Simulated assay, not measured.
Amino acid sequence: MTDWVTACKLDDIEQEGAIRFDHNSRTYAIYRGPDDSVWCTAGLCTHEAIHLADGLVMDFEVECPKHSGAFDYRTGEALRLPACENLRTYPTEIVNGEVRVALG
């Protein structure tokens, strides 16, 4: 069974930006793409557990603020070293201006 959780309002995220979302002792990152699409990944870099929501978001990539590893936040694919392990991704939807994430 999918558990949809309201993470934030769409307006809380700048276009080509990210915010941190914590739920049940886990950290996630919610991204808003250049086309206003919304995506969710695990919130910590797979290289050294740094919060990705603090990183640079451009196009459909997020860059880790510590060592500049990069990920495609749509797929979780690690794009640049030192990140070499992909991020987990989660389905998202926008309902009445709120961003919901499928967790579980």
Rank of each mutant, 00 (worst) to 15 (best):
A18P: 08
A29K: 07
L81I: 06
D54C: 14
I50D: 07
L44G: 03
H51D: 15
G43K: 05
T27M: 09
Y28T: 01
D72S: 07
L103F: 09
R20L: 08
W4G: 09
L87D: 05
A29Y: 09
S68L: 09
G104H: 13
R100I: 00
F21Y: 04
D3C: 08
N24W: 00
D3M: 10
E16L: 06
T89S: 06
F60L: 11
I50N: 07
P82L: 01
T75R: 05
P65R: 03
R20E: 14
V38Q: 04
G43C: 05
R20T: 12
P34Q: 06
R26K: 15
C40K: 03
A18T: 00
N24F: 02
D72Q: 05
S68D: 04
H51P: 15
S37M: 01
G33L: 01
G17A: 02
I30V: 10
Y31E: 03
A29M: 10
T6G: 05
H67C: 05
A18Q: 03
R100C: 01
V38S: 03
E93F: 00
V62P: 11
C45H: 01
G33F: 02
S37T: 09
V5S: 01
D11M: 08
G33I: 00
M1W: 13
R20Y: 00
I94T: 11
A29E: 04
D35E: 13
V5E: 02
F21P: 02
C40Q: 04
G69H: 06
H51V: 15
H67A: 05
V62W: 07
A7I: 01
P34Y: 07
N96M: 09
H47E: 03
P65D: 11
A78F: 11
D35P: 11
R88Q: 14
S68A: 10
E48G: 15
T27G: 11
H67K: 10
C45L: 02
V101A: 09
P82M: 02
D72W: 07
T46L: 08
C64N: 12
F60P: 10
Y73I: 02
E14Y: 09
S68Y: 09
I19W: 02
L52V: 08
D72I: 00
F21M: 01
P65H: 06
G97V: 04
A70R: 15
C64Y: 07
R26C: 07
E48H: 12
Q15V: 11
V101G: 12
E48Q: 15
E61W: 03
D35G: 06
S25G: 12
L56N: 07
T6R: 13
V101Q: 13
W4V: 09
T46Q: 12
T75W: 04
L56F: 13
R80D: 02
A53E: 09
V95P: 11
E63G: 05
H67R: 11
C84E: 15
G43P: 11
L10T: 07
C64A: 12
L52M: 12
Y31F: 13
N24D: 15
